[in-house]
Amino acid sequence: MVLVDTILSLAAQNLLSPIILFFALGLAAALVRSDLSVPEAAAKTLSIYLLFAIGFKGGVSVSDHGVDATLVLSLIVGLILSFLLPFAAFGLLRVMTRLDALDAAAVAGHYGSISIVTFAAATSVLQSQGIASEGYLVAVAAVMEAPAILSALWLAARFSTQAANEGRAQDSKGLFREILFNGSIVLLVGSFVIGFLSGPQGLSEIESFIVAPFKGVLCLFLLDMGLVAGRGLRSSAHYLRPGLILFGIVMPIIGSFAGLVAASMIGLSTGGTVLLMTLSASASYIAVPAAMRVALPEANPSIYLTMSLGITFPFNLTIGIPLYLSLAQVI
């Protein structure tokens, strides 16, 4: 009962935070067909700023606290989680929905990878609660971006029809280089390394640029995400059968439990546990959709983008993060 009260109280607090309210504004604006929009170049600039700030601050934190065995273990655990979660997602989709194997594999890939904005929102909640976390979780986020794509491709090759597999090898050529060196990963890891090398001294030099404005920029980015999610929901709502909606809520909870177990095994702090749970619970909406368009073009993008952005992202943002925080505090 106490746990439920804690979750509800945290969720209520969370719902009134500017980042959630801006997401809601974007969502509502898109649903009422407002002409409000964030131009592509502006949205890209916001995204670059967020990756740069998150990576840099993570690197500074590691530089400040030092490197230990838990860092290496966290990276390995992140890698394993990203590889394995799509298998759980695929099994669940086949049981809960009528998606064919190809669409199920494509959706499953999204749920093994991560959403860096959900991670940023969780970091922001931890900060507002005064809970510290391991800075190197940023590196774990980068590690978790890509392995799920390999799992999704394997699932598609193993379970979808031969006809759909033809030509896939040709399209997948060069895909892994693109995934490993995609702009988001390069910027996140690069900023992390620069933050690590320059340390607290480096942070003090650019603090006014990357610390104080961070939440404001995150609000604008979430406004854009709300708009995209709303447009997706408006145009693709007919794909969202009850089984799919339920999956979009159940899967992050399963992922968060996997993250919780892994975090307990390697001894992460409460804050670190919440972040690993959030990473395991989140679904990708940039790196994986792009990879799926290249490697699995027959899979329907309206399904996986709407699931990831329209169902799981808002769930994590509003209920998921307070739930993961409460569970981590109790356990």
Binding site: S37, V38, P39, E40, A43, K44, L46, S47, F221, D224, M225, L227, V228, R231, S235, S236, Y285, I286, P289, A290, M292, R293, N300, P301, S302, L305, L309
Partner: peptide, 23 residues
């Protein structure tokens, strides 16, 4: 050339916003 947006067999799409790049 960049394309603003449109509609086809797979539904509507737009280039607005960073997360729309994949679509």
């Amino acid at each position: 050339l960049p394309v603003m947006g449109g509609s086809g067999r797979s539904g509507r799409w737009s280039r607005e916003g960073q997360v729309s790049r994949a679509g």
